[in-house]
């Protein structure tokens, strides 16, 4: 059995399980609302996560994963979780849920009990490595988001006083548009 074909076949089921596991990190009343997918503007968080994990899934099962694209897809979700009630580990733990689902599906299909081919085992290792890579990238993205928040705070403080400082001739050397 080719692992990639197996995952493609099970895509809908895997994504649904993955989505539910991510929603389980929210309070149950909230998860109920975030599950609803009718309108991306009425439910931006649930919708972004739902669309995002499919893109991540598709990119990871590609033979040649485009790391730049994978980063963009991860960022869409992590950006949200970086400002929600999550610690760093909680914010990016959803990547590892994919691994758990992968393991469960392989177990259920008994794929490892049947004589596993070398190709299958190599593929499995390859997938797991990609998920690890996604986790590492996620850590960088999370840090980037948090650093961005501090930068934004500092910029707001600067912007607020800039005009007054400029007018008081306390800063004259840099043109205004440079700080925007």
């Amino acid at each position: 059995m080719n692992l990639r074909n197996f995952l493609t076949e099970k895509k809908t089921l895997i994504l649904s399980k993955w989505f539910n596991l991510i929603l389980d990190t929210y309070p149950p009343e909230t998860a109920k609302f975030f599950r609803n997918q009718d309108d991306p503007f009425r439910n931006p968080v649930g919708s972004t996560i739902f669309v995002g994990i499919e893109k991540i899934f598709d990119e990871i099962i590609k033979e040649k994963t485009d790391v730049a694209k994978l980063s963009i897809f991860l960022e869409e979700i992590i950006k949200i979780r970086a400002v929600q009630d999550f610690s760093a580990s909680q914010a990016i733990a959803f990547i590892f849920s994919f691994k758990d689902i992968l393991k469960d599906e392989i177990n259920q299909a008994d794929l490892l009990q049947k004589p596993a081919t070398k190709e299958f085992l190599m593929d499995l290792h390859d997938f797991q490595s990609k998920i690890d890579l996604a986790a590492l990238i996620s850590f960088d993205i999370y840090m980037k988001c948090r650093e961005k928040l501090y930068e934004l705070k500092a910029n707001e403080a600067k912007k607020m006083t800039y005009r007054l400082l400029q007018q008081a001739k306390l800063i004259v050397e840099s043109p205004e548009r440079d700080i925007n």
């Binding site: 929210y26 909230t30 975030f34 439910n43 931006p44 968080v45 400002v83």
Partner: peptide
């Protein structure tokens, strides 16, 4: 705030 944060 609920839609973006998820606090019930």
């Amino acid at each position: 705030f609920f839609l973006g944060g998820g606090d019930p």
